[in-house]
Design a protein around this nucleic acid. Structure first.
Lengths: 137, 137
DNA sequence: TCTTGCCTTGACGCCCGCGTCAAGGCATAC
DNA sequence: GTATGCCTTGACGCGGGCGTCAAGGCAAGA
């Protein structure tokens, strides 16, 4: 099949496929007209790439999976290099999620504080919140 | 004070300050030599920007806080527009953390599956894992 | 023959927050 | 005089993964 069909079947664009080729990730054969030619195996490789990209993997991080498939393994993650990428990614995700969670709680605390301060200074009705035994009860 | 001193005191660079000025975020007065001049209030504004940037806020998202301070409020988040940014950011963070957590568990599952498959096909010693009542016991 | 449709390579654009280099001005210190 | 150090504006670079023209080729269908 040619580039347009492969792109359509994988739900991506011809531009993307040409880009992958420049990166050496998905080289293509050429037919008599100089057009790129792909087979079902290439579709499989491309699907592997897209799946990992959807997970947020960098393009370079998909390379071990692609090479693993190209080496004849039925799964792209059947090789040690792929497992290593999985593990690095897990560590990255854990670090990132932890960091974001910290920011989240900090921002939440700031918001709560600012809301309290705003409420206390509103001219309309300060209406101080019940402070567990405060005189507003 | 001039740009170099302000940058140093805020732990950033002169390039950054000039960039903020082009964005209209931190305009500067000029002295006789055409040099930018800042005061302590500008340092306060800059610190507000940097703090929010460290939390992952886009530069534009810091604008309401800066304008709030410039309007005379003692805190940058004493204005409704700032609170709105806080809330949007919280929602963004929740969405992102949720998404990343989903990816994390998916990747973890893939890793576990791939490790099992690898273990089962290792020529050295398959040594199948106990499957809770499996015949390997 | 002409149009349509697919393909080719090349190259610039985008986003965002700056880093970095270039070329020059002004002031203080020696 | 000149070296040093701070400042100025202008402009290109970067990273990642493509989007989006531009200009042209080749083949099949009306």
């Amino acid at each position: 099949m040619r580039i347009g069909e492969l792109a359509a079947r994988a739900g991506t664009t011809t531009r993307t496929l040409r880009y992958y080729e420049t990166r050496g990730l998905l080289p293509a054969r050429r037919d008599g007209q100089g057009h790129r030619t792909y087979d079902e195996g290439d579709l499989r490789l491309l699907e592997q790439i897209r799946t990992l990209r959807d997970f947020g993997f960098d393009l370079e991080e998909t390379r071990p999976f692609v090479e693993c498939l190209r080496a004849g393994h039925p799964e792209g993650d059947a090789c040690p290099a792929s497992l290593a990428v999985y593990r690095r990614k897990l560590a990255e995700l854990d670090a990132l999620i932890g960091e974001l969670s910290g920011v989240r709680s900090t921002v939440a605390a700031q918001l709560a504080r600012a809301e309290l301060a705003a409420e206390a200074s509103v001219p309309g009705g300060p209406e101080p919140v019940c402070e567990l035994g405060g005189r507003t009860l």
